[in-house]
Amino acid sequence: MLTRATLLVALLCVPLWAQSNDAVVRRVDDHYNHLSSLRARYVEQYSGMGMNKTETGTLLLKKPGKMRWSYDEPVGKVFVLDGKYAWFYTPGDAQAQRVPAKELDDLRSPLRFLLGHTQLKKELENLTVTPEGSGFRITGVPKGMEQRVKLLTLDVTADGAIQTMRIEEVGGAVTGFVFSNMEENVPVKSSEFVFTPPVGVTIVKGLPPV
């Protein structure tokens, strides 16, 4: 009887061109469905609306439904998804923005499928898979974001870990994320996903600026 580990090794030994799209997608699903938490460094690059900027920080994921993007600069800039609401705050702003998670239309939200029971075929329209280096490139359009996102591209390793994410918007803007130093199933406190606005900062409903 083949164990899961034996099956994975067998799949990895098959030439990239010979592996079916479904097998690759299932491997990504399987990889993240066996995670309870993830910590990683990220580099975020944005170009559009006359701007080009690069930001870095630390990403934390915890099931079910929790996510935190802590930016290096300015210290204290965060995007927090606590399972019910998404919070956006930049130090110095007079307001913190809060959006119900079910209404979230943010370019980081495609990673939310990592927080539940991952099924990429249900999350992406027009899904394609092609060999890319020693891994694969998966493309598609996130369901529910068709009016904003033209194409989502994921570069994944041979064992199904996401290394990069690139979002091309309908208006031409492009946002890319590169992930490194990934630590899986690490201890993560629930308090990491609690956002408390600083004294004097008001909470408003809305979507974050670019």
Rank of each mutant, 00 (worst) to 15 (best):
M1Y: 12
T3L: 03
L7D: 10
L8P: 02
L8T: 07
L8K: 05
V9C: 09
V9G: 10
V9Q: 14
C13Q: 12
C13D: 13
P15Y: 07
W17S: 09
Q19C: 12
S20P: 03
S20A: 07
N21Q: 15
N21G: 15
V24E: 02
R26N: 04
R27I: 01
R27P: 02
D29H: 02
H31A: 10
H34E: 09
L38I: 06
R39F: 06
R39T: 11
A40K: 01
V43R: 09
Y46Q: 10
S47E: 15
S47G: 11
G48K: 04
G50K: 11
T56Y: 12
T56E: 15
G57N: 08
L59D: 00
L59S: 00
L60Y: 13
L60C: 04
K62L: 13
G65Y: 05
G65N: 14
M67F: 09
W69D: 02
W69Q: 08
V75Q: 11
V75R: 13
G76A: 08
G76H: 07
K77V: 03
V78R: 01
V78P: 01
F79R: 06
V80D: 00
G83L: 01
Y85W: 06
T90C: 10
P91K: 03
Q95D: 07
Q95N: 08
A96R: 06
Q97D: 02
P100R: 05
K102N: 13
E103S: 13
E103F: 09
D106N: 10
L107K: 11
P110Y: 05
R112F: 09
F113H: 07
F113P: 00
G116D: 10
G116L: 00
G116S: 09
H117P: 00
T118R: 08
T118F: 04
Q119D: 12
Q119N: 14
L120C: 07
L120W: 07
L120E: 05
N126Y: 10
T130W: 09
P131E: 04
E132I: 04
G133P: 00
F136L: 04
I138G: 00
G140Q: 05
V141C: 01
P142F: 01
R148M: 01
V149D: 01
K150A: 12
K150W: 05
D155K: 14
D155Y: 11
A158S: 14
T164H: 00
I167D: 00
I167W: 04
E168G: 07
E169N: 09
S180K: 07
E184G: 02
N185D: 11
V186I: 12
V186W: 02
V188D: 02
K189M: 10
S190R: 13
E192S: 13
E192N: 13
F193V: 03
F193E: 02
F195P: 01
F195Q: 06
G200H: 08
P208Q: 14
